[in-house]
Design a binder for these strands. Structure first.
Length: 332
DNA sequence: AATGAGTACAACCGCAAGTTG
DNA sequence: ACAACTTGCGGTTGTACTCAT
């Protein structure tokens, strides 16, 4: 007897998920929690296989997902982790809270691979490509040649100063490199905030050791949250941290009054927020699509006013410690 | 404006590991 | 111990979108 397919494929829908399907899935998981994916489509009234539901949830609908491009800092981490773990995307993703293995894999294939190749680094082995090695050899030879020429054409006194200057010149990049080499993740974070270019060398990348990567437990995942309707708009992370249920309560608010409060006042600020990737809170989790999903889940009104989509500005994302069990066991 | 190439990313597929009866 | 089942992972594909011509 062969292995049963994960689902009966006859009559099952494939391809992109519709808003209606998302709604059903979110509704179901909010009500019942995540369990037995095989049973989910039947119980949720979806013509999908359980696998597809799980994928949709974990890669797209999950509330603790960050959306948007990976930051410079995240990219650096991915490169370093990939150097050590290879294509074990889920392992890599586990070091980047809010990111999925699929997302990282896609980003690797579309962005990072190219960047590394441009830099003369083999994205598979993380070593310098033969061409790049030849190039650096040539450059070194050229430099030596130039130095020799300069030495020949200059007086001994000038020589000393020149040599010193040359040394200084040579020191400059070295200094930079060693400072990079000694950098910790925190320093990398700081560098990321000033948008430094990607690595100058392989050595640099290898400095991001796994041991240095802060592993964040699922129950520590920060979920951007919205203040309640009556809330002060300057709510701080500390105030929200102290009460993890705020997030849930807010989600359960029947009227979502707060949604348009922000929409009106903060469009400009939002634009700045999206453009300003230096900002620590680089979470675009609550993008239109996502909010739309939740909006209609809560209101259960497909014809509801879509203009009242919540768009909270970056300074109004209180940090909330997300208790994984709340999601896992459907405590909504 | 039309169109073809390139890009980004959501989704699918098959396999393997883990779990259960 | 073993087969059936479930879940998760990594590779690949399909398609919508963007941009250059």
């Amino acid at each position: 007897m062969g292995r049963q397919p994960c689902c009966d494929k006859v009559g099952l829908k494939k391809g992109p998920w519709t808003a209606e399907e998302d709604k059903k899935l979110i509704n179901f998981i909010l009500t019942n929690g995540q369990c037995c994916w095989r049973a989910v489509p039947k119980l949720a009234g979806l013509l999908r296989c359980g696998k597809s539901c799980r994928l949709r949830w974990t890669n797209y609908l999950r509330p603790d997902l960050k959306r948007g491009l990976l930051s410079e800092y995240e990219e650096k981490m991915v490169i370093d982790l990939h150097a050590q773990l290879g294509n074990r995307w889920s392992k890599i993703a586990s070091h980047l809270p809010g990111r999925t293995d699929n997302e990282i894999k896609n980003h690797w294939n579309t962005h990072i691979k190219k960047k590394l190749k441009k830099m003369g680094i083999d994205p598979v082995t993380h070593k310098l490509l033969p061409n790049a090695i030849d190039q650096t050899k040539c450059e070194k030879q050229q430099q030596l040649q130039e130095q020799q020429n300069q030495q020949e054409s200059s007086s001994p006194i000038e020589d000393d100063t020149k040599v010193e200057n040359e040394n200084d010149k040579n020191k400059e990049p070295q200094k930079q490199e060693t400072s990079f080499e000694s950098s910790t993740i925190n320093e990398a974070k700081e560098q990321d905030q000033v948008m430094t270019p990607l690595f100058d060398s392989l050595e640099l990348m290898n400095e991001f050791l796994i041991e240095e990567v802060p592993i964040i437990n699922s129950n520590e995942i920060l979920v951007p949250c919205v203040p309640s309707s009556s809330s002060n708009t300057t709510s701080t992370s500390s105030s929200s941290n102290s009460n993890s249920s705020n997030f849930l309560e807010d989600l359960l608010l029947p009227d979502f009054d707060w949604s348009h409060n922000f929409n009106v006042n903060n469009n400009i600020e939002n634009n700045n927020f999206n453009e300003n990737s230096n900002n620590n809170i680089n979470m675009t989790l609550w993008d239109d699509d996502f909010i739309r999903s939740w909006d209609f889940v809560i209101n259960d009104d497909d014809d509801g006013d879509r203009n009242q989509v919540f768009e909270a500005p970056h300074n109004q994302y209180p940090k909330v410690i997300m208790d994984s069990e709340i999601w896992a066991y459907g405590m909504f």
